[in-house]
């Protein structure tokens, strides 16, 4: 009898440890958990590999590419893809693959940096408006209304015109013009969470305001923003390309993808490869950012777990 009892206890104890350890491993939101989640999702994993590879290749491109991104060779003008120039050459005979790889870091980091600025401004404004409400909310939201009454691209053009063209200025212009969207989303999200009964429950067990915001509101309000941010990186990259295309963005001879498209469009009838390749790279990058964003969102939300 006594032996049995000891044995039983040992069993329950080991199962207990098991549950706790398992829970720890499965804690949504922890970095290892997000990583595991992405790894299980082949699409997201592939996308992540593409993003990282593009970045690495972009920085290595001056050393590994046969041709410099700015090397002009009139002999290769308009060259179609061939064994020397894998993706062909542009109107002054510069190797398109070299230019795309070199330009990757610009297009992709504009997306990152400007989204970081937008999200930071937007989350703070939205959180303040949503949590405090009243006249603070009114003031912030009316200000954003005015801001948002301009179409996004127009606002970005306006800011770039004021600041002038250039890599950092494009980031700033896109960052500021993107902020209202995040603010609105954060506010809406916080309002929903703030009215939940579990916030009231937290108050009833003596949770401080700071703890309620940190432990109960933010974790529940943030998930729509994660996906928005992931898509925002892609959208901001597109927008940067659009700005360059219109001549407000990163200036020649820096081979930003949008400006490559912009200059290639004059030759689209006769030499479409000059447009197609930068376009394909823009598309792939946008898609990859979106897919990774989806996976991270899923990993953060315990309700979406399989």
């Amino acid at each position: 009898m006594a032996k049995d009892k000891v044995k039983n206890e040992a069993v329950t104890e080991s199962t207990e440890i098991d549950y706790a350890a398992k829970a720890k491993r499965n804690k949504p939101g922890s970095l290892p958990y997000i990583w595991r989640h992405i790894r299980q999702n082949p699409l997201a994993m592939g996308s992540l590999v593409i993003i990282i590879a593009l970045f690495i290749l972009s920085f290595l491109s001056p050393y590994i590419m046969k041709y410099s991104f700015s090397k002009i060779s009139m002999r290769d003008q308009y060259a179609l893809p061939n064994s020397e120039h894998l993706l062909g050459c542009d109107e002054v005979g510069r190797d398109i693959l070299s230019r795309i790889l070199y330009g990757a870091k610009y297009t992709m980091s504009i997306g990152f940096a400007s989204t970081a600025i937008s999200a930071a401004i937007g989350i703070v404004l939205g959180a303040v408006a949503g949590y405090f409400g009243g006249w603070v909310d009114g003031l912030i939201m009316r200000f954003l209304d005015i801001f948002q009454s301009f179409p996004g691209i127009l606002l970005a053009i306006l800011i770039s015109t004021v600041l002038g063209p250039g890599f950092e200025k494009v980031i700033l212009a896109l960052g500021v013009s993107g902020a209202p969207g995040y603010a609105r989303m954060m506010r809406a999200s916080i309002l929903t969470v703030r009215g939940s009964e579990y916030i009231e429950a937290a108050q009833s067990i003596n949770c401080s305001t700071a703890r309620i915001i940190r432990k109960h509101i933010i974790p529940n309000a943030i998930s729509p923003l994660i996906i928005q941010i992931a898509q925002g990186i892609a959208a901001a990259g597109l927008m940067a390309s659009a700005l360059s295309f219109l001549g407000f963005g990163v200036q020649a001879p820096t081979p930003e993808w949008g400006s490559m498209l912009s200059s290639a469009r004059n030759f689209i009838r006769d030499y479409p490869h000059m447009c197609i390749f930068p376009g394909i790279f823009i598309m792939i990058t946008v898609l990859a950012y979106n897919l990774v964003g989806d996976a991270i969102r899923d990993a953060l939300d315990p309700r979406l777990r399989d």
Binding site: A23, P28, G29, S196, E197, Y198, E200, A201, A202, S204, I205, N206, C207, R211, K215, H216, P219, N220, P302, R303
Partner: peptide, 30 residues
Amino acid sequence: EKMQIIFQDPYSSLNPRMTLRDTIKEPLEL
């Protein structure tokens, strides 16, 4: 600490991001 409440809707009165254990532990912690 002396007066508590049990809510109507068990679906919305628990924080969806916290494990049951953490939810029950919180008042003790506080």
